[in-house]
Write a protein that binds this DNA or RNA. Structure first.
Lengths: 290, 290
DNA sequence: TTCATATGATAGCTAGGCTAACATACAGAA
DNA sequence: TTCTGTATGTTAGCCTAGCTATCATATGAA
């Protein structure tokens, strides 16, 4: 396709609108520009083709036979473009929004609540994608990601969803009635920690417990350390939203909780991506923590 | 047609080229932009539609099924636009170029020569439009105008074609052998002048003849005054190119001629209008005065 | 004649489109 | 395995195509 002989697509669009309306002013209103812009485009096309396309007729403009032929072809072409665009937008509206969440957050916070979203929005399908890492929203085609941290990530828009201070918990069977007021009271316990979470070790150290002098077992994932605690094997540390579910069910007991934590669960999105359904879901997420 | 839901036409063009080539770099070469421009456009479209359109595949890019559907529609649409544009350009190439000339210039300078142009360029049709006034090239759909004056017109490109100093002439039958060296020698003659040409009166006055003391008849048009002179009724003043034809035929005798005149015949065009045939004709016009 | 609404013309503004430059990734040749 | 050519990814910053604002003239209805 030799684009050299084809004039400005914006000029062609302006001309097609002017020809369809028989008026520069009406075309301007249609395209949200001034009549001057339409006029300039049409003149430029007449210069490019070396033929008059429209001419004055009273207050409006009449299309010449040459102009009529061009306008008809352009109408067909832009009609195809409009149809293809609309079809794709409709298709995008029907696809599930892809949400990346950590497995623990999904199990303990989101799943218990997602039924409410489905009830309220049966027209919006949500595809939950468990993932442990911070992903690339664009490359991985993710609409929303929920991640635990300080929210200071580049390239995405992040808003805090809910606070997630560290919480020390253990199974009732492990505690056997032991009383605790602070982390230091837990000295001598068996610690079950996620080897990846240096923040947890820091929190414990900052609260009077030297982990180097404690009985600590490090697990490859937080899920494994959590399951070990649920089995009554010792004390573990969970983010508050994850812990709350287990505590409510009585499977774990809250021993000590971090107040005013800098870390939280955040909602990550790409604002340049237009997606109304994604926006509805994010709004619902935030309504669950109000 | 709701243009609000339709993304940038330039972005759609970039995407169609990338899809057709399976490569940002090849599309860039096709459209004479950088691969970065293509990449940005495709990403912007993916954000607009909320769907991936192309994805990495080794060194090139593969089109997704959604992208393929869009690309096919765009290919059809841009094909229509290309066809319509090319057809109109071809049509413009075949139409006659419209040349506006004054009747006297046509009769005395152009018509004796135009046969040479037709012989050299049988493929270019020239439509001669006699007109007395300076016209609006665009409004009147004129490709070339040839006009007499100082060339200082706004809104058009003018280049001098041939000098056109004033020339005093009379029929041999009127002169009856009278000898002249300058205009002053013509005192006492009957002057036949175009009432519209104040420049001619000025020239005569500047060369020693007070027309207020002469026998002067003013005509409504230059043609009438010229025909009166051809009939032997007196002395008239013509632009040199108009006079030269009559002098060569012996119908008129040159009495006195203006040297280094500021006025000339000029070729007027609109450079913003693209028209190769017009350019060929203008080039030929200038070759006739080299 | 007056008034509303059209197009014509153009100086000047601005943001969409692009480039330049540097990055990483892929694939084939040596 | 290494090197090289060529692909895409990213982004700061430039710039001109596209537009607006403004004032002009022209048209047609009241």
């Amino acid at each position: 396709m030799n684009w050299h002989d084809i004039p400005s697509l914006l000029a062609l669009r302006a001309f097609e609108a002017a020809a369809r309306h028989g008026s520069f002013s009406a075309a301007a209103r249609d395209l949200n520009v001034t009549h001057a812009a339409i006029g300039q485009h049409v003149r430029a096309l007449e210069d490019h083709f070396g033929l008059p396309l429209m001419q004055r007729e009273g207050r409006g403009m009449a299309v010449t036979p040459d102009g009529r032929r061009l306008a008809d072809s352009l109408g067909d072409a832009f009609g195809l473009i409009a149809s293809a665009s609309t079809d794709l937008l409709d298709q995008a509206k029907t696809r599930a929004i892809r949400v990346s969440i950590t497995p623990s957050f999904a199990a303990n916070w989101l799943m218990p609540r997602i039924g409410g979203f489905w009830d309220a929005h049966p027209d919006i399908e949500v595809e939950l994608i468990p993932s442990m890492q911070l992903i690339d929203l664009r490359r991985d085609n993710i609409d929303v990601a929920i991640r635990y941290g300080d929210g200071n990530w580049t390239g995405v828009h992040s808003t805090p969803l809910l606070s997630a201070g560290h919480t020390a918990v253990a199974a009732p069977s492990y505690l056997k009635g032991c009383d605790t007021d602070c982390l230091a009271d837990l000295k001598g316990s068996r610690w079950l920690l996620d080897g990846n979470r240096s923040e947890e070790k820091l929190w414990v150290a900052q609260n009077g417990v030297d982990l180097d002098e404690e009985d600590v077992t490090y697990f490859a994932t937080g899920q494994l350390s959590r399951e070990a605690a649920l089995a009554g094997l010792g004390v573990t540390i969970l983010p508050a939203p994850v812990a709350s579910g287990h505590i409510a069910s009585g499977a774990l007991v809250k021993l000590c909780e971090e107040i005013d934590s800098a870390v939280a669960y955040h909602v990550l999105t790409r604002p340049e991506a237009v997606n109304p359904a994604r926006d509805v879901f994010v709004k619902w997420l935030k309504s669950q923590t109000a």
